[in-house]
Design a protein around this nucleic acid. Structure first.
Lengths: 137, 137
DNA sequence: ATTGATGCAAATAATTTGCACCTTT
DNA sequence: AAAGGTGCAAATTATTTGCATCAAT
């Protein structure tokens, strides 16, 4: 997968752009909301060892290239991000949709003022039932 | 710990109010942002087996009495909730502060309309550095 | 060339389960 | 009394690590 900006982001962070890391990132981009285990299973078929997947996830997360999130009573899941991290997750089928704006910028600023935290970012997970899962019983 | 409303919530959900479950809930209330492991270690001293802690966490989470969240490159953490789940997390020391209003109600409604999801709720984790951790190097 | 990344297999840690016994409703 | 919860220990599953080799800068 050709990802505009990815290369640059790797370089900026001093991460080596190995085929494995790109593959891990791409896998989460193609399958947002996967668990590490699911991703590792797919990537193993491409000859990528599971230790590498775990190591790549750590590196990518530290670089802010993927985010982790936990839907209620679910294993930790990941999704690729190039920008902000906002996800809409179906509780039933696990389908994940990335969201655009969340209108939290002002809230964040006010929060920083009131709490005296230095706010670095946020993760918002909205969960519910996707249209398909609303149908089936 | 005496928790107004907890009893009722247990009953509403058909959960048995065992001393162990109350203890697990209280532990997360007293130590918001703990991992299961941390909670289990503390509770073990009270004679609660770790399998019980895992089972209680699952039950409580299903009942909406605790929430799980994952700060960036962190193990999954939990916090007790009686209402909505909004947390301010320090990335350095893990200190967690519950937040009140988030101003997302309107956003949620609009999102439901646009995405056709049936929105059930959301988890918002704002992360950054708490005042203390901004000082120390 | 140098430094860091990979794959494998082994080690460690986290989570779940079976079962006999006890508690809540 | 019935249904469900608990503790322990064993089983299973997830994650990390050591090390020799390989690849990216």
């Amino acid at each position: 997968m050709e990802v505009p900006g990815l290369e640059r982001r790797f370089r900026e962070r001093g991460l080596r752009r190995t085929p494995q890391r790109v593959a891990v990132w791409s896998d989460f981009a193609d399958h947002p909301g996967s668990t590490i285990r699911e991703a590792a299973a797919r990537l193993q078929r491409a000859g990528i060892g599971q230790a590498t997947v775990y190591r790549a996830v750590r590196a990518l997360e530290e670089a802010g290239l993927i985010v982790r999130f936990a839907a209620p009573h679910e294993e930790v899941r990941f999704a690729a991000v190039l920008d902000h991290a906002h996800l809409l997750v179906c509780e039933r089928c696990g389908h994940v949709e990335p969201l655009q704006e969340c209108g939290l910028r002002a809230y964040e600023a006010e929060l920083a003022r009131r709490s005296r935290f230095r706010v670095r970012g946020h993760t918002l997970i909205v969960y519910g039932l996707c249209p398909e899962c609303q149908e089936s019983p």
